[in-house]
């Protein structure tokens, strides 16, 4: 992306940015407000949904001629979006990710990615969230989406970032996938204006020298909490990187973190294989990066049951305590002796 911008500094977002750092905010509300705002400046912006439209009401009411709810028809929804994009429009498809990423996968691949159309897919239920059970958890989606040629893949926790990424995406020529958790109550991770959001670039959410915790989506907050515990209880200075763009992955940042911290822990609300850790492992192997430690935390090969999000993460070994434990394991439980232990081949 050529444009970089600060969160919450764009005109028209005053209402959203009145929320403060650390508060809970609905990503869905941010999406609704942002789409309404963008609908005014982009008369070719369309919003489509397969019956998941509660927070799209503002857009629908403002631009009824550019809103389509097809009902429960994910395949047609994505195909119609592709048809609209074929006519020069910028369609945003909003829905639940388990269904958009799997039921409509072939439409996403062949109708959107193949001709490289600017369709955005934004949705909720990425990871073990919402207590819906395995039909309603998107846990393979990042593996599927990162496999697709031309697709840009993001996973976002901070609700204000969702709006920013949507704004930036208006100038993108190809498709974009935006993954959210439940999207009802999301922690504002970054003080508005404090970080640069640029699609394709990771965000260093916390500086640190002993290891880097890589995360995306809701696990960014968890990684930050783990870093606090590591600092307070073990004297370990953990860096936290919000790798909100999984594709294209920020290789330079991975290289820099390897040089500067030498040890990686990746924690994500996705199958442990196929998501961010796998993307990073590819870079590490391809670039010949030698690390002093690498751990991946994510969902094992199970269909997870019911429970609260944090309970499920604990149960399946990628919760807060597991993150702290993995960091202790790769660091040997103590701060690194030198600031630079990474060795780049």
């Amino acid at each position: 992306m050529s444009t970089a911008a600060k969160t919450g500094t764009e005109p028209g977002t005053d209402q959203i940015t009145s929320f403060t750092f650390g508060e809970l905010l609905s990503s869905r509300t941010v999406i609704g407000q942002t789409l309404k705002e963008l609908g005014e400046t982009h008369d070719n912006l369309w919003v489509l949904t397969p019956d998941i439209g509660a927070t799209l009401v503002e857009f629908r009411d403002a631009y009824p001629d550019r809103f389509v709810d097809v009902g429960l028809s994910e395949q047609a929804c994505v195909g119609i979006a592709a048809g609209l994009a074929n006519e020069g429009n910028i369609p945003v498809v909003s829905g639940m990710l388990p269904f958009l990423s799997m039921r409509a996968l072939e439409q996403v691949r062949s109708d959107i990615c193949y001709p490289n159309l600017p369709v955005k897919i934004v949705g909720t239920h990425g990871g073990l969230v919402g207590n819906g059970g395995s039909t309603h958890y998107a846990v393979e989606d990042l593996g599927l989406m990162t496999s697709l040629v031309n697709m840009t893949v993001t996973s976002i926790g901070d609700p204000l970032m969702v709006g920013e990424v949507l704004r930036q995406s208006m100038s993108m020529t190809g498709p974009l996938y935006i993954r959210l958790a439940v999207g009802k109550k999301d922690k504002v991770v970054y003080e508005p204006g404090s970080v640069t959001v640029e699609i394709g670039k990771g965000i260093t959410a916390r500086e640190g020298t002993d290891l880097t915790l890589f995360a995306h989506g809701e696990t960014v907050s968890q990684a930050l909490d783990a870093a606090d515990i590591l600092g307070a209880e073990h004297g370990i200075n953990a860096r936290v990187v919000d790798m909100f763009t999984l594709k294209p992955i920020d290789e330079d940042l991975i290289l820099r973190c390897a040089e500067e911290t030498g040890r990686f822990v990746v924690v994500e609300d996705h199958l442990a294989y196929g998501g961010l850790a796998s993307q990073m492992a590819d870079v590490i192997a391809d670039r010949g990066i030698r690390l002093d430690g690498f751990r991946r935390l994510g969902i094992p090969q199970v269909f997870a049951g019911f429970g609260e999000d944090t309970e499920l993460r604990d149960k399946h070994g990628y919760g807060l305590q597991a993150t702290v434990d993995a960091a202790l394991a790769v660091t040997g439980g103590r701060p690194a002796e030198s600031e630079s232990t990474g060795d780049i081949a």
Binding site: Q75, A76, G79, A81, N86, Q107, P115, N116
Partner: peptide, 26 residues
């Protein structure tokens, strides 16, 4: 992409009507 004049890339069956529906909606 390779052959301008062709409106839509197709091949996988059952994709044409949703695509045409989107184009007609526009």
């Amino acid at each position: 992409v390779q052959l301008p004049g062709v409106e839509v890339s197709t091949g996988s069956l059952g994709h044409g009507l949703p695509l045409a529906t989107g184009m007609a909606l526009h």
